[in-house]
């Protein structure tokens, strides 16, 4: 990672644990979503609805606590169920109704973006907000819920590692093990490469595809919960960049270690890479509006690298 060295030299203060943790924190939520997309990419699909699932989860968590006055664990459970349910619907649309994955999840994205605004008449949710009938919302974000977004574990330095980073690392390891080292993961890769052949060796292809979208839905809802806990309010505009950033991370992940296929380790690295790049640029006073351009450029270069290499590999194999 020449990038780390470069920024360490160029921007004083870049190379210290706090800065590193800041990068991790900034990529944790995107990274979690990206891991979900990776799972759908593995089975040869694509999930465009993750950003919308995350913001829906964010709004739902806020709604549960602030308006319905439920405790934190109920809010978390409801969000996770919602994520799994949306994943199930996505999967069924794709598998049973044979809608192409991009279109099915695009439709779902629109649906959710609209749906999450209906209960609040398009407003954000905050403690003490006034409701439609004129009364004031009594509920609050409980301390336990906010802990999810704001607590920091001690590691060498006091209050160093935030909870979302821990969650990100745990999910990354879990998905990495699942995809790379279990028979289910192996069959999912097989489906992505040749669905027909995999069905003909007796694998339940439809169930695996639905499972992939459910995993994606759940990880996206986890991302939304963590975001809600960090913000402490249900902000409808907060999830705007999530989709593009996480898809970019997953696609950049293709190029890591020359794998040329979706993989959890690559996705985590891709998310970190983008995070480091942006952090470094910020510390060198690059203006914020250049960020998307840089992300786009990184993505295009990574894709060129991946597909050019894999096409060359494919060619030399055939003779």
């Amino acid at each position: 990672m020449a990038l780390v060295v470069y920024f360490s030299l160029a921007a004083s203060g870049f190379a210290n644990p706090r800065s590193a943790v800041f990068v991790l924190q900034s990529v944790a939520i995107t990274g979690i979503l990206a891991l979900g997309v990776t799972t759908t990419l593995v089975v040869g699909g694509f999930d465009l609805s993750i950003g919308a699932v995350a913001t829906t989860s964010l709004m739902l968590a806020a709604y549960c606590m602030v308006v319905l006055e439920q405790p934190a664990y109920v809010a978390v459970a409801v969000c996770l169920l919602m994520g799994a349910f949306i994943g199930l619907i996505n999967g069924l649309l794709i598998v049973k109704f044979r809608i192409p994955d991009l279109l099915a999840t695009l439709g779902m994205m629109f649906l959710l973006i609209g749906l999450q605004r209906i209960p609040t008449q398009g407003n954000s949710i905050a403690t003490g907000m006034s409701l439609a009938d004129g009364s004031t919302a009594e509920g609050t974000f409980s301390a336990a819920f906010l802990w999810l977004g704001r607590h920091r574990f001690d590691l060498i330095l006091e209050r160093l590692i935030p909870v979302p980073v821990v969650v990100f690392v745990l999910i990354a390891v879990a998905i990495w093990l699942f995809l790379g080292f279990t028979r289910h993961g192996r069959l999912m890769y097989a489906i992505g490469s040749n669905e027909r052949a995999t069905a003909l060796v007796g694998a339940p292809v439809e169930r695996y595809k639905i499972a992939a979208y459910m995993i994606s839905g759940v990880t996206a809802s986890i991302g939304g919960i963590l975001l809600a806990a960090r913000l402490g309010r249900g902000d409808i505009a907060s999830g705007n960049n999530l989709l593009l950033d996480s898809v970019a991370a997953a696609l950049i992940g293709f190029a890591v270690l020359g794998a040329a296929r979706p993989n959890a380790f690559g996705t985590a690295m891709g998310a970190l890479f983008v995070g480091i790049l942006l952090q470094g640029m910020t510390m060198m006073n690059a203006p914020y509006y250049t960020q998307d351009f840089v992300k786009g450029a990184v993505l295009v270069v990574a894709l060129m690298f991946t597909f050019y290499l894999s096409s060359r590999r494919g060619q030399s194999g055939r003779h």
Binding site: R186, L187, Y189, A190, A197, T198, L200, V201
Partner: peptide, 17 residues
């Protein structure tokens, strides 16, 4: 079309079922 998993190596193709 019906058998080979193009992205896999020999061992993974062989042991798939």
């Amino acid at each position: 079309t019906n058998g080979v998993i193009g992205d896999f190596n020999i061992a993974d193709n062989m042991t798939l079922p």
